[in-house]
Nucleic acid binder design. Structure first.
Lengths: 336, 336
DNA sequence: CTGAAAGCGCTTACAG
DNA sequence: CTGAAAGCGCTTACAG
């Protein structure tokens, strides 16, 4: 495909490959290549549409202009749009992106990280699973450039870009309280990862601050993306058992979607029978009748902060870890 | 990172790098390396967790175990889930995937293809834009392994995996006719690409076969993802102008989503005021009240066919182009 | 102002 | 049954 190598260009220009390489890498001035020769070489490179071979360069320099992106699930609305934004920003800077989904599976996640390291990507954006803690420590030891995304390890001093999950959950819960709801259920996933913990903590803190009593039986924890579809039944029976609930707050977009499915199959209407709110925005929440009140994540902002930070870390000689929290945005709709 | 090279392993095993390379590439038997030596080397490779350097190998062989995926928009429900399935299948086969979104932008799309070629990916899955025709011809001349996805060029004999769009549109239109609708509007995007043409043709054919008269003023063509959001207004005025329409068929998921938004903001209800159906399934269509009747694309099947075909083409010495059409699945819900 | 040469890590034709 | 050596395409320290 790349018929042309440095050598071919050199022959055509009647100079050495060294000289061509200098011109190619913008070192013509520094190396004092004459203007005449520089221009001549540039012309030939353009005419032949010559691009340096990635392997030759990679072997020599260890650089790839490729980034590794690890998300939870590229098919999810949130992560899919995050990926889109990151890819666009990377493209504009001349980087390729290798993308991978962990599906919250620890062994797969670790395997993916190894694969990306082995692939010599220049930097990583990682939505870590719980079990990746050691692998992240290792990555840091190896002085790789990376930023954690959506979640992080509280006891590890790494760079990250996350939503301020605590205040998102806190503000939404306060909102429900202010509307007069008193029995507010919180439906979350069974995860120790910080982003889910913070959402739960935000909910708890708001309940307590409001003078209500935190009742742990009002918290429903589902396993992550159970394949057998048992979530639906679990949630249904939770709702049926707690028939005094007057509001439900779903902790992620797919829980909210599941919740709407569930409530509607139970014939419950909202906000009539109970108020419904969710984390994350989604076309369904926006267009459902009534619209669902949500804690929206500013997706483009989150993704752009992550890629910008990563590129910054990659070019910095040395940098202290940078930790960014983006405020969420509450969108009030009819579901209360 | 990869501290260990072939050389290190060779030194540790007390053999030449040639021998290690043979073992590494499963040529031990063929090259008649003794069992004793083979086992010893394998043990060391495992113990050191040695992985061959991708650049060294790539430079020598030109192979990368990396695939290039070009979709329209990774943030879209359809393409996001396609990407997810492809990535999973590729991962299981030991391939990495570099993914890119064209956003239906010709120059970007061509640029992405060049980038992927330059990156020496072993194979391509491409959702082409209209303007990529020449680039695809070129790709074929270069004997690259690739499969077109979701759409293809009718006058080009290339491999592809697509939905049978014609029959999807045809069947849905017939369904509407059978329900008694007579003024069926078709909302599509302004594209000459085959998948949209076939949908329109399917609609037309069904109208004619049903003894109705094809009325081109009932076809509304919107520009692809106009940034300024003018689609909403265009569609709105189309609906207002044609107040005798008794059914609308949206030709893609994002048009259907836009349509629901639009109809609902006009205060129109369905199927009361008019029937509503769409191409592609989506959480919104499934859970909206009433549920939206759709022509669903079997996403996993489409994606798996594409990746399987690509892998087949990659390992085949030579293969005639393979062209696969997957039948759509109509899902009937309350919107008629 | 420019070039010859080493070396990054690998695979494989050739030799024995 | 095993190894020395060439060469893939590049960058850069060194020499002049």
């Amino acid at each position: 495909m790349n018929k042309f190598s440095l050598k071919d260009i050199a022959i055509e220009a009647g100079v050495s490959i060294t000289t061509v390489s200098f011109v190619l890498n913008g070192k013509a001035k520094e190396k004092r290549i004459s203007n005449r020769v520089t221009e001549k070489i540039k012309k030939i490179i353009a005419a032949r549409n010559y691009k340096p071979n990635v392997f030759g360069r990679g072997l020599r320099t260890g650089k790839t202009t490729t980034l590794g992106l690890i998300v939870e699930d590229i098919g999810n609305f949130f992560f899919g749009n995050v990926a889109k934004t990151i890819e666009l920003a990377a493209y504009r800077k001349g980087y390729k992106v290798i993308f991978t989904s962990t599906d919250n599976d620890d062994p797969k996640a670790k395997d993916l990280l190894t694969m990306l390291k082995h692939q010599q990507v220049d930097g990583f954006i990682i939505t870590p699973t719980e079990g990746m803690r050691d692998a992240i420590i290792q990555l840091q030891k190896e002085k790789k450039s990376f930023v954690l995304f959506d979640r992080f390890f509280p006891d590890l001093n790494t760079s990250y870009v996350v939503l301020d999950n605590f205040s998102g959950a806190y503000d939404m819960t306060c909102h429900l309280v202010s509307k007069g709801y008193k029995k507010i259920a919180f439906v979350t996933i069974n995860s120790n990862m910080i982003q889910m913990k913070e959402r739960l903590e935000g909910y708890k803190a708001a309940i307590k601050r409001s003078g209500l009593v935190f009742d742990k039986t009002l918290v429903c924890s589902l396993p992550f993306l159970s394949v057998n579809g048992s979530d639906f039944e679990t949630l249904k029976s939770f709702i049926l058992t707690h028939n005094d609930i007057d509001a439900i707050f779903f902790a992620t977009n797919y829980l909210g979607i599941l919740g709407i499915d569930c409530l509607s199959s139970l014939g419950l209407s909202f906000p009539g029978d109970l108020a419904v709110t969710s984390f994350d925005d989604h076309d369904l929440f926006r267009l459902y009748k009534p619209g669902i009140t949500v804690v929206a994540q500013p997706i483009e902002k989150l993704a752009n902060e992550a890629i910008d930070l990563l590129l910054h870390l990659m070019e910095a000689e040395y940098s202290e870890p940078v930790q960014i929290r983006i405020p969420p945005e509450l969108i009030f709709r009819g579901s209360e």
